[in-house]
Simulated scan of single mutants.
Amino acid sequence: MISKEEVQHFAENGYLHVRAVFSEQEVEDMRNGVDRIVNKAAQSRYDRNHAWEGDYLEEKELKKLVLKGFHDVHYQEAAFTRAMVHPNMTSVLQQLIGPNVELHHSKMLVKPPENGAAFPMHQDHPYFPHEKHTMLAASVHLDDADKENGCLHVVPGSHKKGPIPHIGQHYLDQKEYSIEEGTPCPAKAGDVVFFNYLTIHGSLPNYSSRTRRNVLYQFRDPSDLPVKQSHVNWGQGLMVSGEKPDYQEYKPEKILQTR
């Protein structure tokens, strides 16, 4: 559980750092899950480098990668399913979103040492706009993160500006919104940083010799409908707390038709 002051902090600033949500063993289970996913993907035709080209390489050559990303990781490893319904996670979500909480998607991001790319400042809103803006991200840290290895930076209170036009839908004008001017959010492994999808955020490159691994979940109130059909995932619609206000069908063929 989080305090009323922390709930108010999220409402006012658009983000909240909650410490020790997951135990050392739970973090280790997720780390191992990340490793297995990357290794299996590298042997398949589904290998992905998130937004940048690249292949998964041996540890000695890992620095050549920029950023490794895979969506819907809870369909690959049970550790990620346990994490999103963990009592420590859902108790926070219930206070930030409400009694009914629905998963939109999950993904993992691996920022490799020494050459892990920056993520320019942006809002998540353009990717999956919703009517009531209840969507938030829960960034689960699997490694200690600081400014040296590219921790998250946020602009407190920026969610109150509402949707902001992005360049090519992806990023804000970096002359107006620089990562360096954001507030850094250093965190320990097992911590979770929650932030509204309208909160401006980004991260600097990983200049360290340490990998930075995160699992990111996007959650919403199930009554908060998308403005348009976008960013459809197999995991979309899974309830992690409470109930849906209406009966809805979720069929794979309907999802595939939108891709």
Rank of each mutant, 00 (worst) to 15 (best):
H71R: 08
F70S: 06
R48Q: 08
K64P: 00
E28A: 12
Q95I: 09
T81D: 14
E28Y: 05
Q94L: 04
G69Q: 07
R19W: 00
H17D: 03
D29E: 15
V85F: 03
E77T: 02
V34A: 00
H86K: 13
N115S: 11
G33W: 03
Q94W: 03
S44F: 02
D35N: 06
E102W: 03
A42S: 14
H71I: 03
V18W: 05
G116E: 10
Q43C: 02
S23Y: 05
V92E: 12
A51I: 11
G98F: 09
R45G: 14
Y46C: 00
A11F: 04
V34H: 01
V27C: 13
V38W: 01
A83M: 12
F70R: 07
R48T: 08
E26V: 07
N39T: 09
A51C: 01
A83D: 13
E102A: 12
V34M: 01
R19N: 07
A20D: 15
V27E: 03
D29G: 02
F10V: 06
E26N: 05
N88M: 09
I97S: 11
R82D: 15
V18D: 05
Y15S: 07
G98Y: 08
G54S: 01
S23P: 09
K60V: 03
N39S: 10
K60C: 00
Y46E: 05
L62S: 07
N49C: 05
N13G: 01
K111W: 05
K107H: 07
P99K: 15
K107G: 10
V7Q: 14
Q43A: 10
E24P: 14
N13S: 12
P99W: 02
L109Y: 08
L103F: 07
G69T: 08
H17S: 11
G116H: 10
L93Y: 11
S44E: 02
Q8S: 13
T90Y: 12
